[in-house]
Amino acid sequence: MLEINDETALEEAAQGNADAFGVLYERYVGRIYNYIYYRTGNPYDAEDLTSRVFYRASSHIQQYRNMGVPFSAWLYRIAHNLVANWHRDNSRHQEVPLEDDYQLQHRSEHPEMKLERNEELEMLLNTIRKLPADRQQLIILKFVDHLSNAEVGQIMGRSEGAVKSLYHRTLLTLREDLEKTDSTG
């Protein structure tokens, strides 16, 4: 079952085949979780929002078929919207820095998530999270999920050239912001 391609799995999932949806889920849950984890900064919200992404996908799978974008892009768009809502709902609360988050919420079930606590990582993530949402999305899709500009374009609804341009501007901005942080810190 795991060998079937997305298109076949989607057709079967749309006809109510839960196992086919399970195949798609297994294929993309890690990538979606990663994206949400880096956007929210903690594993609990990442799990909650990842669940919502797949619930929404399973309940709207028949509507997806006419949208003309890859299934993965559709999932990322759902994730992006849910993360945006999450940020809006949590805008009054101060975000927990990733480093503190590990100290407070360490769980033995997450061995791979025990990133080394490191000042540069914290500073980098804090600076990234101050960027506009679309630029944060771009950085995570490029560096965490290792997607091409064309794939990022499908997810963000932009042309490949527009993604490339945004990518350059984002890295330059990020560099400037980090230099400011370095000089003040």
Partner: peptide, 18 residues
């Protein structure tokens, strides 16, 4: 920015529910 892996228990639990 290194990829992280979700808790396997969470992944299994969600798959069963879905």
């Amino acid at each position: 920015l290194t990829p992280v892996r979700p808790d396997p228990e969470f992944v299994d639990r969600l798959r069963k529910r879905l």
